[in-house]
Amino acid sequence: MNLTLKIWRQPDAATTGSMHTYEVDDVSEDMSFLEMLDVLNEQLNAKGEEPIAFDSDCREGICGMCGLMINGEAHGPVTTTTCQLHMRSFTDGETITIEPWRSDAFPVVKDLVVDRGAFDRIIQQGGFISVNTGSAPEAHAVPVPRDDAMRAFNVATCIGCGACVAACPNGSASLFIGAKITHLGELPQGQPERDSRVVNMVAQHDHEGFGGCTNIGECAAACPKEIPLDVISQLNKDLRTAIRHGH
């Protein structure tokens, strides 16, 4: 198929960017979306035009490195990551708009690449269990009910891609934090630091410039790992409990 692409180009964080139009021909439906961009980049390189910068690494939906706004939707029309989106989801002759994540907390680095360092800084404020190497008790010392372990696992599958933030009209990262709070909060090992964790992570979230949550739900709809919206209720509940405990 032949496609028209409208792509955001921006040389660096300091320079303003704009949309550019490219034609790409002979796209096969078996290509992934990023392979289609690879093909375009080869063509640009051959013409002496600098290739378009975009992030990806695993290309199998697990590292969270990729992420594009495709026709206004985070990761495009299918519930998956950008790297797992295939061209069979598009039609011949279509025009596709491709932009980077848009959020004050994720500044554009170049073209379609953004800086998601804010997520790491949120984790630094409590997204862990404090246990030094070598000090752990025998793994079977504390049984964990199977359902709790499963729920913890289901939300621990968050890949930190940032689609939730990009999709949210407020630019909130509540789904991302809620997933971490719930993952650690479901497990007995996570209890001792439960209150401080939520308070500190939320404080860092606000400090980074992410917006507040008004329960719109776009985040969960865009999340490639289908993290459910109820982790945000859990987040709010944990926050209230922590405040009641005097945090």
């Binding site: 070598g134 199977r146 090992q189």
Partner: peptide
């Protein structure tokens, strides 16, 4: 063996049996 102890203590959600053991 120590690896598993360490990871469980960190909150790695390994698969478990109905009795709550790994």
């Amino acid at each position: 063996t120590s690896i598993i102890d360490q990871c469980v203590a960190q909150g790695v959600p390994f698969a478990r049996e109905y009795g709550g053991l790994l």
